[in-house]
Design a protein around this nucleic acid. Structure first.
Lengths: 114, 114
DNA sequence: TTGACATATAACTATATAGACATATAATCG
DNA sequence: CGATTATATGTCTATATAGTTATATGTCAA
């Protein structure tokens, strides 16, 4: 079995850094394809391909204006990622780390003893 | 060019659902490989492979106890994912959506008029 | 030492890319 | 219509898998 398709879910779609760049750009507002091409410096076919992937997982929507296609962001499919990763916040944030707090308190007590 | 390696960063490592399962299990505490095999019902070589990927991106650490290898979680590499995705929270959470708040207030005013 | 247990690695298959280049489709303008 | 502009798609290459099966490595126990 090969890797799951990039269009399987947001997790896979967003693993590619250039697709994150595109989303970051669209977060600033609707943009036609050539804007993305110009700003991010990728070739036009590559941008179109990445946009297709993002469209298939619902991270962007399109609106036709004459011969331009305006792409806009839809962050909703990112929610599962946020929900999943948030459960791990405790493992890097001292604010959430009870053990660290305890150790710190013990350390403070120890220093007072000296 | 092919897709970036799964060991490139946490984004890629975590795109695979079974690796997320493994992390979710390890979140409950240190575990030997065969525990993961038994609980998650994957073959042992597959688990070892996934653990190797997770190790290479720093999401798990190992500790040898006799012939067992105890794996434990290290969530730190997930922070970049959290940081990136958090910026999009506004796009699905009404709580962060100014426009929605405004519309809601207008709605309330309108209902009072009736 | 021999054997049983725990884990890692090797070989193999099928498949899905990212990116480049060339070309097709489609809409607008003169 | 013909030319130009905007975007999508097809083709080709190199490569990286996830999963299976078989085997190697390493550790403990009797």
């Amino acid at each position: 079995m090969a890797r799951a398709a990039t269009t399987t879910d947001a997790f896979n779609a967003v693993a590619e850094p250039r697709r994150r760049q595109i989303l970051d750009l669209l977060a600033g507002g609707e943009r036609p394809v050539n804007d993305v091409v110009a700003v991010l410096g990728m070739t036009q076919p590559l941008v179109s391909k990445h946009l297709k992937v993002l469209r298939e997982v619902g991270l962007v929507t399109v609106r036709d204006i004459g011969r331009q296609r305006m792409y806009s962001l839809n962050g909703q499919p990112l929610k599962p990622i946020h929900d999943w990763v948030r459960g791990y916040e405790a493992s890097w944030s001292r604010r959430f780390d009870r053990l660290d707090d305890v150790l710190e308190e013990l350390q403070e007590l120890k220093e007072k003893e000296d």
